[in-house]
């Protein structure tokens, strides 16, 4: 009995609840006669396109800066990179890869400046990161207005200036990754290329955590005073971690856009931070301990939940966005739970 209980505790109550919820929804979907193959295919795509965002949370937790609430900085950098690629009219693999390359450059610059700011506010990174992120999103809103893009896909058809709120990539690199080596099992579509790419990035990050720099980052995150005493430059380590996180988000949004079919500009990036945060926490990460599998498992659970819940909810309450309400409650509930677990001073 106690063994079972310990196993349950190791697995974590939040995960059990969410899995139970997913099963419940799946049963509901079956009973309603939903198309299960489509549901599973959709879930797989959603998992793949969102995973890098959750992975982006890992480096900041690793260096002890908590969840990266300013991930919007990485996202707008990524969008900027992708849009430049679209502007140049690059298509297919070349377009996407060039976009990602530019995204990495922009993300590095943005992340570096962001990390310099966060280094001065140690202990309050999450709160301040959140507001810095929002500030940057609105600064970029002004930039999108004046941005010197010329490609008619990007700018408004009337007036000839200003970026649209959604930019379709269908003529450029939509689903380049998803379609690569795509195959079907029965009627379930497997987006092989998407997963290959995402897992490649995960593997590279894994290699990074096991490198010398990765070790240094972990030591800093675990005990900064000890790290300083061992001759580690703490601020440098944190710059690396926060910048890496921003870059991962910048890559992530391009992977997302090629799968989703659109870039969302203006206020779009604002709400994107919370689901990945909830994902990595749900996967089992805490403010002190984080592993790549937490991002993978967490994204898998939360995205499956959200994808499967959508049609079921629509069936139950037509013309409503119950699934969006669920997303808000679940993501923020998980974050809130994690905050209380991390505890402050109890006194």
């Amino acid at each position: 009995m106690s063994v079972v209980r310990r196993k349950i505790r190791e697995f974590g109550m939040p995960r059990i609840i969410i899995i139970a919820f997913i099963l419940l929804i799946l049963v509901g979907a079956l009973l309603e006669g939903q198309d299960m193959a489509t549901l599973i295919s959709d879930s797989l795509v959603r998992v793949g396109q969102n995973m890098l965002m959750a992975l982006a949370m890992l480096p900041t937790i690793l260096v002890g800066a908590g969840l990266n609430m300013g991930i919007a900085i990485g996202i707008v950098s990524g969008i900027l990179g992708g849009l430049i690629s679209v502007e140049l009219g690059l298509v297919g693999w070349g377009g996407l890869m060039f976009g990602i390359l530019l995204a990495i450059c922009a993300g590095t610059v943005g992340g570096f400046i962001y990390s310099l700011l966060l280094n001065r506010v140690r202990g309050s990174e999450m709160l301040i990161g959140n507001y810095l992120g929002s500030t940057v999103v609105y600064l970029m809103c002004m930039f999108w207005f004046a941005a010197p893009f010329k490609n008619p896909t990007i700018i408004w058809p009337m007036g000839g200036k200003g970026v649209r709120t959604t930019i379709p990539v269908s003529d450029f690199f939509e689903k380049v990754l998803n379609r690569f080596l795509m195959f079907k099992i029965g009627r379930v579509t497997i987006p092989t290329g998407l997963f290959l790419f995402v897992f490649l990035v995960c593997f590279l990050v894994y290699l990074f955590t096991k490198s010398r720099t990765g070790m240094i980052l972990r030591t800093v995150g675990n005990n900064p005073s000890y790290a300083a005493m061992s001759g580690i430059h703490i601020n440098k380590a944190r710059i690396i971690g926060i910048t890496l996180s921003t870059v991962l988000a910048a890559i992530g949004i391009n992977v997302y856009a090629q799968s989703y079919g659109f870039y969302q500009t203006y206020e779009g990036p604002l709400t994107m931070a919370f689901t990945p945060m909830a994902a990595i926490l749900l996967g089992g990460a805490t403010m002190k301990n984080v592993k790549i599998r937490h991002a993978v498992i967490g994204t898998f659970l939360i995205q499956t939940l959200l994808t499967t819940a959508l049609p079921v909810c629509n069936q139950l309450f037509p013309e409503s966005n119950l699934s969006e309400v669920f997303r808000i409650i679940i993501s923020n509930g998980i974050i809130l739970y994690a905050l209380t677990q991390a505890g402050g001073d109890r006194r």
């Binding site: 010398r212 005073s225 061992s230």
Partner: peptide, 21 residues
């Protein structure tokens, strides 16, 4: 406070300073 990294393993703690230095 300054002696070790509490969440790292025994092995990692013993090796960490040598890795860095």
């Amino acid at each position: 406070r300054m002696g070790f990294a509490p969440n790292l393993s025994i092995g990692e703690n013993i090796a960490a300073p040598s890795m860095v230095a």
